[in-house]
């Protein structure tokens, strides 16, 4: 499964979750859904906004992990 690691980049940029949510134009609840891995899909424009706000590459926040079931 794909994990979205926002916390590491947030710590590097010294940014709070609420501030990031405001910058990328989504609610805190939706950002939590992304962070907790409950999101079914992410729009390219959302990923674009996250990378722009955190000044990083998609590879910095997206990580693939094997599912335990498989």
């Amino acid at each position: 499964m794909i994990i979205i690691n926002i916390d590491v980049m947030l710590a590097k940029r010294k940014m709070k979750v609420g501030e990031l949510a405001e910058r990328i134009g989504i609610t805190n609840a939706n950002l939590s859904i992304l962070k907790n891995g409950k999101a079914k899909a992410i729009r390219i424009e959302t990923l674009d906004a996250i990378c722009r706000a955190l000044e990083c590459q998609p590879g910095d926040i997206l990580e693939f992990q094997e599912d335990e079931d498989q």
Binding site: I26, N30, L31, I33, L34, A39, K40, A41, I42, R43
Partner: peptide, 8 residues
């Protein structure tokens, strides 16, 4: 709708 709601 569920899938759409969980598309951020």
């Amino acid at each position: 709708k569920q899938e759409n709601d969980l598309t951020i």
